[in-house]
Design a protein around this nucleic acid. Structure first.
Length: 300
DNA sequence: CCGGACTCCTGGTTGC
DNA sequence: TGCAACCAGGAGTCCG
C-alpha cells in the first residue's frame, strides 16, 4: 500500500500545485477522515480557509503542507493509511465516490485547482498539526504527530551508524525492525519483503545476530528497493494507489517476493513461500533466505 | 523492552 | 445467482 515511494510521488506531484496557492474552501464529506485532527471538522475547515500553502514535505509515510503563516507554525498533515489517495483535479471534475475531503485552491499561476482526498478504507486522514523542533537536528522541524517517527533512509540527515547501532540493540526480529517506524521510517510490508529478499535475509533473523556487514547490506538493499520504486513512480498491484494526476503508477512486475507466493524465486527457482506474519503476510524464498544462527543454521 | 491482540475500515474476491 | 466470510494492512493503544 502506500509506502515511502508512493507518498514521495504524491508529494512531488503536489508541490507545483500547492506551493503558493491559497485555500478557497474546505469541504469535509466524511469526518472519519479527520481521525488525526484534534478538534471538530469546523475547526479544521475554519483554520484552513484562506490560508496560503508552502511546498509539501515528507517523512516516511507522513506528508505535510506547511501553512505559509509563521505565527502558528501550522501544517496540513496527511497520512494515506492503507488506501488513501490525493488527487489533483480541475474544479469541474466529477468527484470520486470515495472522496472524503475536498480542498479548493487558487493558485497564482495555475488558477483554480481542486485537491481531493479519496480513501476507501478510511485508515488515512488529514489533520491540522503544529511544527515542533526535530529531536535530532538543529533548525529542523516536524509536525508534532511525526516527532516520534524516525528519519527515512533517503533523508540526507539519516544517520546510518545510529541506525545500525539501534538495530543491534533491539531484541527483535529483522522484519519487525524494518516495519518499526520509530527505528527507520517509510518501509511497509511490500518493501520490507523486497529488501529482505534482495539481501537474502530471513524475516525472523534476530537483529542481534545480524552481522554488521549484513546489516549494512540490508540498509543498502532497502535504499535500492525504495529508489527503484521511486524511479518507477511507486507500486500499485491492485490499482489502489493512484498518483496525484490520477494515473496509476506501478512496477508490480518488478516485485521479487511480495505477492509471489508459489511462484519461482527469480534467483534460484525455488517456490516463494507465503506465511502469516503480524496479522499480514510475509513472502520469502526458503532457499535464499534462511535464519542464520551464530553457529550452524536453523531453517524456518 | 517486547510481542501479541485489538481497533479503526470497505470493497473485491472466494466459497458454499 | 446470492450472500456471507474472508482478506488486504498502517499505526496507535493496551496489556501481560
Amino acid at each position: 500500500m502506500p509506502e515511502l515511494p508512493e507518498v514521495e510521488v504524491v508529494r512531488a506531484g503536489l508541490e507545483p500545485a500547492v506551493d503558493g496557492a491559497t485555500i478557497e474552501r474546505v469541504t469535509v464529506l466524511d469526518e472519519r477522515s479527520l481521525r488525526r485532527h484534534a478538534g471538530p471538522s469546523e475547526d479544521f475547515t475554519a483554520r484552513l480557509t484562506s490560508a496560503r500553502l508552502a511546498a509539501p514535505r515528507r517523512r516516511g509515510k507522513f506528508l505535510w503542507v506547511p501553512l505559509d503563516d509563521l505565527r502558528d507554525r501550522l501544517v496540513l498533515l496527511v497520512h494515506l493509511g492503507m488506501s488513501g489517495q490525493v488527487l489533483l483535479r480541475t474544479p469541474d471534475a466529477p468527484l470520486d465516490r470515495l472522496t472524503r475531503i475536498v480542498i479548493d485552491l487558487a493558485h497564482p499561476v495555475h488558477g483554480a485547482l481542486r485537491v481531493d482526498f479519496v480513501d476507501q478504507r478510511v485508515f488515512g486522514s488529514m489533520a491540522l498539526d503544529e511544527l515542533v523542533p526535530a529531536p535530532d537536528v538543529e533548525d529542523d522541524t516536524v509536525p508534532r504527530q511525526v516527532a516520534h517517527i524516525a528519519r527515512d533512509p533517503i533523508d540526507p540527515a539519516f544517520d546510518d551508524e545510529r541506525f545500525l547501532a539501534s538495530l543491534r540493540r533491539r531484541r527483535t526480529t529483522v522484519k519487525r525492525a524494518l516495519l518499526d517506524q520509530t527505528l527507520v521510517s517509510g518501509i511497509g510490508n511490500i518493501y520490507a519483503d523486497e529488501a529482505l529478499w534482495a539481501a537474502r535475509i530471513h524475516a525472523d533473523q534476530p537483529t542481534e545476530t545480524l552481522s554488521r556487514p549484513r546489516a549494512r547490506l540490508l540498509l543498502e538493499e532497502v535504499r535500492l528497493v525504495l529508489a527503484k520504486a521511486l524511479a518507477e513512480g511507486g507500486t500499485s498491484f491492485d490499482a489502489q494507489y493512484v498518483n496525484v494526476n490520477g494515473a496509476s503508477g506501478y512496477f508490480s512486475h518488478s516485485l521479487n517476493a511480495y505477492g509471489r507466493g508459489g511462484e519461482p524465486c527469480r534467483r534460484c527457482g525455488t517456490a516463494i513461500v507465503r506465511v502469516a506474519f503480524m496479522n499480514r503476510s510475509s513472502h520469502f524464498c526458503p532457499r535464499c533466505q534462511r535464519v542464520r544462527g551464530s553457529r550452524g543454521s536453523r531453517v524456518e
